[in-house]
């Protein structure tokens, strides 16, 4: 039966892990990139559009895991959206495959400014093991203007969360001064 389980879950302590802290130097570097007007418009919540530019799907597994109850991404005001038109962040995984380059550019063109582009995973950072291939341009930076790199193969949900929280913290920066 489902209902007794749901009732028990209401009374049990949360399954969600405590929040990780965003690295201060990353936050400072990101804050510098962000104009004051953009800061005001982005606020304390970010809509993320995940774009796979050619990953092995390992990164997708970990990005998906961010949404499970242990990490519960939405408690931070971070959520995945279905269209780049609704997004503040393009979270790109995989090397920049030549067969995906046009789709990547179109996704960027659909994403309203101000926006962040995050390259997540070793392949997205610089092409990883695929950088020497005829079929890739190298890292995501070869096709899109990247603001934040999250290395790892694949980056763990905790590492991804750290990077995404740094974006949020960067937007909050001036208020702390």
């Amino acid at each position: 039966m489902l209902w007794p389980r749901l009732a028990r879950a209401l009374l049990a302590k949360p399954l969600t892990d405590p929040a990780v802290a965003a690295p201060a130097e990353t936050v400072a570097a990101l804050a510098e990139r962000l104009a004051a007007t953009a800061r005001a418009r982005l606020g304390r919540s970010l809509a993320i559009r995940e774009v796979d530019s050619g990953s092995c799907n390992g990164c997708e597994l970990e990005v998906n895991a961010l949404q499970n109850v242990a990490y519960d991404l939405e408690r931070f005001g971070l959520r995945f959206v279905a269209s780049p038109k609704h997004a503040d962040v393009l979270l790109v995984t995989g090397p920049a495959c030549r067969n995906m380059a046009e789709a990547m550019e179109r996704a960027l063109a659909c994403t309203p400014e101000p926006r962040w582009v995050v390259a997540a995973g070793d392949c997205a950072v610089d092409g990883g093991v695929f950088k020497a291939s005829y079929a890739t341009h190298g890292g995501v930076g070869a096709v899109l203007p990247v603001d934040l790199l999250i290395p790892g193969c694949p980056p763990s949900p905790a590492q991804l969360l750290e990077g995404l929280l740094a974006l949020l913290e960067a937007e909050a920066e001036p208020r702390k001064k």
Binding site: D52, G54, S55, G94, P95, C97, R98, N99, M100, A103, V129, F130, A132, S133, Y134, A135, T136
Partner: peptide, 11 residues
């Protein structure tokens, strides 16, 4: 399909 072709075999 083919959008994710990375030239894996040639590498």
């Amino acid at each position: 399909l083919g959008y994710k072709h990375k030239g894996t075999l040639s590498l």
